[in-house]
């Protein structure tokens, strides 16, 4: 059953009690929040996802709650918890929704060690997946939002999930986190997409989350074969420059973006090197998203 089949009132009541489980493929989350704005945005962005059955277990039980201190009366704060554990210091009230999304990512990175997890977007076109590993500020999420709304299948905006045995990528489809100027750009390019309210002055600047395409959400259990690794650098004065990386450089750049390669030890290293050996790696400097898309679908990778 999809979340949107629930009435908003039902969802609100269930979220209030922490009774709603949502299936995200490689992990499931029970989400609890009494805050109406968090409930509302969650209902909008996750409407296409399936609900976990009453008697089925979930992997992570997360909540966003108002912190208890006298400060709540003059400068309210919210905090994120995984079950009873609160990994971060509280944040200002206005950042409640982004904190939920980041907290969910943290749960994966800190606990989901059955897969190799890489900090990077991953999207698929014509049965070939491309990983875009990158630190914040490289333009990865904007590129991701662009491709996801131009007929590509979104596997993840933030976290690439690699199967340790098969080397295939598992989707971990989530709302795309846009920052600063890219929020208005995406709204302008794709007027129909659902974008959450913006949260100002977060550690990443101004952020908003974009609802993932329904088709990508419905393919949550469909794995993908990785064709190439593309390191994006949004650069104002370059239309599109492409550099090929050798295997050592490729390993270095991917490994530095891995969440749990070290945690997985030898298994992690093997999964990482296999991925590098079976794919090509390029670094791109660009200011034109359409050229990037053309290059990926019609350039060297298409042959």
């Amino acid at each position: 059953m999809q979340l949107k089949e629930l009435e908003y009132g039902d969802l609100s009541e269930k979220m209030h009690k922490g009774n709603i489980g949502i299936d995200l493929g490689v992990a499931s989350f029970r989400v609890k929040s009494k805050l109406p704005d968090v409930q509302k945005v969650f209902y909008e962005l996750y409407s296409d996802y399936s609900i976990v059955g009453q008697d089925d277990p979930t992997d992570f039980q997360v909540s966003i709650q108002q912190s208890f201190s006298l400060r709540r009366w003059f400068k309210p704060q919210i905090s994120f918890s995984l079950d009873q554990y609160t990994p971060f210091l509280p944040l200002p009230r206005s950042q409640a929704y982004p904190l939920l999304e980041w907290g969910m990512n943290w749960c994966m990175a800190a606990h989901q060690h059955n897969f190799l997890l890489i900090h990077g977007a991953i999207l698929e076109k014509n049965d070939e997946a491309f990983i875009f590993p990158a630190p914040p500020g490289s333009g990865k999420s904007t590129l991701c939002a662009y491709l996801a709304n131009s007929g590509w299948r979104l596997l993840s905006d933030e976290m690439t999930v690699i199967n340790l045995e098969t080397g295939l990528a598992h989707p971990f489809v989530r709302p795309i986190c846009l920052k600063n100027n890219s929020i208005d750009l995406v709204k302008e390019w794709f007027p129909d997409v659902v974008v959450s309210n913006i949260a100002k002055d977060t550690s990443k600047g101004t952020v908003a989350h974009v609802k993932p395409p329904e088709s990508s959400v419905l393919d949550l259990y469909k794995t993908a074969k990785v064709r190439a690794i593309v390191l994006p650098h949004f650069t104002l004065d370059k239309k599109l420059d492409i550099y090929t990386l050798n295997k050592i450089q490729a390993y270095e750049s991917l490994s530095s973006n891995a969440f749990n390669e070290g945690m997985l030890g030898l298994q992690g290293f093997r999964a990482m090197t296999r991925l590098i050996e079976q794919t090509d790696t390029v670094e791109i400097f660009y200011n034109d998203l359409n050229s990037v898309m053309e290059f990926l679908t019609e350039g060297v990778f298409a042959q």
Binding site: S67, S69, L70, R71, K75, Q77, L89, P90
Partner: peptide, 8 residues
């Protein structure tokens, strides 16, 4: 002090 000003 923490109760008044918040954790951290």
């Amino acid at each position: 002090g923490e109760m008044i000003a918040g954790k951290g």
